[in-house]
Amino acid sequence: MRLDEKYLNGLMIAGLLALPLWAVMADQPFTITLVTRAVILALAAVGLNIVLGIGGMVSFGHAVFFGIGGYAMGILAFHAQTYTALELGLFTTDGTKFMPVIWLVAMITSGLVAFFIGLLSLRTSGVYFIMITLAFGQMFFYFAISWAQYGGEDGLSIYVRNDFPGLNTLIPIQFYAICFTLLCVVLFLFARLQASPFGLALNAARQAGTRVETVGLNPMRLKLLAFVISGAITGLAGALFADLNRFVSPTMFSWQLSGELIVLIIIGGVGRLMGPVIGACVFVALEHFLGELTDFWHVYLGVILLCIVLFGRGGLIGLLTGKEGAHV
């Protein structure tokens, strides 16, 4: 059976709408939390997909941006809930519990960090690029562990979820609505970006860098901007993830998380619009259902990953639509 990719994408979105609504009716709040988790991980992976899928850069350090988003939320909300001032050099703030501001701070901070990490690491490629991004990830991880002011190894707990005008974010379905909407917006932007001249040039830089140079474009700059956009999106996901758990800790910076984001994309389909979404859903489902049966559920994830890498280079989307994915 071969599905048209458009229908498959529509089906996925419909499923992400229907499942939580069913859960509300069946009074299954935990299911909503699971789907929210999948949607947020998908959002983070859509960010990574710009770099990995279109630009062909295997970033093994995207947890940096996820963590920065998480800590942006954690720090701002911590100061707001403890009524302490946050000194930022020139100015002082009392923190905030207002989501849009938190998102903006998360995106700007992770975008800036992505700029500097990209500036250094994009000088390399292949294995060296993987290693240097991993090294940045570890730097942030150990920095967070030693950052005693914000909980160090224990992390930070935020007692009440942050506010969004007009919504009660503590009700799972309402928080889900926020995350789902953001995912849809970012997916739409991803689709536009992929088809735009910038996306075409970035995609070409992955396939034939020399060609891009000979038509007068600078592949480095294309990749750097992609890295910044990607970092900002993953940062946004980090802020949501911290809000979902009402908790942020150094594990958000861990290399395992960077790896999981890559795995999500490979399962779903590298460079595919909905690849990260399918990947995240499968990942969270396995984590939950197999995790109930055995602590060693990663073994099964490994087998699935192995099969996909060996037999279906286009991930699950490639398998269902009969088209191969992007080669990285």
């Binding site: 536009r192 735009s196 001249p197 910038f198 075409l200 038509v215």
Partner: peptide, 27 residues
């Protein structure tokens, strides 16, 4: 030196983008 996953037209468009200086459009 061509983009093997892209269509013939997309490869040519890449050149046109270089010539027109239109790579930094996102929409």
């Amino acid at each position: 030196q061509l983009c093997m996953e892209d269509t013939v037209l997309e490869n040519a468009i890449l050149g046109a983008m270089g010539a027109e200086g239109l790579a930094w459009r996102f929409w």
